[in-house]
Simulated scan of single mutants.
Amino acid sequence: MKPMISKYLFSSVGLVALSFLIWFFIPAENLMKTEEKWKGVCWVGSRQPLQGGEVQALLATGANAISQTPFGWQSEKNTPEIRWDMSNERRWWGETPAGIKATYDSSASKGIMNMMKPHLWARGSWPGEIEMQNEADWKIWFANYQGFILDYARLAEDLKMPMLCVGTELELTSQREKEWRAIIAEVRKVYSGKITYAANFTEFEKVKFWDALDYIGVQAYFPLAKDHNPNLNELKKSWESHLPKIEKVVRKYKKPVLFTEIGYCNTVDAAVEPWVWPNERKEIEFSEEVQALCYEAFFETAWKKSWMAGVFFWKWYPERHQREPDFTPQGKAAERVMSAYFLK
């Protein structure tokens, strides 16, 4: 019997090895076949109730998806308390459960897919710097965060919202794999839709729980230029240098990718550090052209990949405002680029 066992053993091992080699050498553009791509924007919750017709301008661009972003608040990046109150009506209307529902109802009735994407707002910091100083505080923080995300998971389930993002840019917490797997398991108990996590572009390669999710989510603010006013070729070459890192993760976890956020300001330095907030660019020269070129470079590279399941551009206002500079493509050359590719 021993030779027979060895024969089957080596045969099985050979099949596994062959499967691995076939997967490893598949052309990158054929790694993961997705169905229709989600053509999305990050919808800004408005101060006041929608008046009607706000979705029409978005539909005209060819968009078929939005993310909605309610907030929880953390007073300090190193303390475990998280505040959120689903019944607090003093928040902006669009971020309340009633506003989220109304936005969902009005957009879903027009065929627009919604993703619930709660964020944490850390005072004087950003979510990627949230980190506890001892194990006791880590335990409290994860218990609080689980309560926060489960409340929104239940709301998403009640609304039959098709997609939920369980966390955004929590880079110094996502390395705690055991805790995040436990949260994802609890979310699955109350929410039946598709789930992702929005990892910062500096974080996604280190996340180890992608297998527990439906999509690899990336906050795709990759630097694309070293100086102001780059040309399209420079931007496309930069994308080609970043894409292999994403494809390596796709090969490992065999999951499609969502760019849960991507965006560029209408300034000459937009491609250098795309993540920089507009209020830090007040002395920078405006440029619709650079913003539009950044959009075009994305569509001509990453968007064409078969593993790309969708994108959400930061950001889109129900009513266009005049604050400048800003990330929104509304009323700018970038909107025309976005529309041209979304409508193809």
Rank of each mutant, 00 (worst) to 15 (best):
R188Q: 10
F209A: 14
E288T: 10
P325D: 06
P329T: 07
K206F: 00
N144D: 05
E157I: 01
Q74F: 00
P27C: 04
F209I: 08
A333I: 02
S174P: 13
N134F: 01
E177L: 07
V16E: 07
C165G: 03
L18E: 08
V166P: 09
W307Y: 11
K304P: 05
A60L: 00
A63K: 02
K37R: 11
G147S: 10
H119E: 03
R123I: 04
T96G: 15
I246Q: 06
L232Y: 01
I216C: 15
F342T: 02
K252P: 05
N134C: 09
Q48C: 10
I140C: 11
I195H: 03
I149S: 09
W138P: 06
M86D: 10
G52H: 03
A333R: 03
L258E: 05
P118M: 09
M132R: 09
A98L: 04
G331Y: 01
I216R: 11
N78L: 08
D214Q: 08
K304I: 02
L235H: 01
A156P: 07
F142Q: 13
W141F: 08
E89V: 13
A225F: 01
Y8H: 15
L155K: 06
R83G: 09
M116R: 04
I284P: 10
K315M: 11
T260R: 09
N88D: 13
S287N: 04
D214A: 12
L9E: 04
V166E: 08
K282Q: 06
P325V: 05
L31D: 09
M116F: 02
S11P: 01
A65P: 06
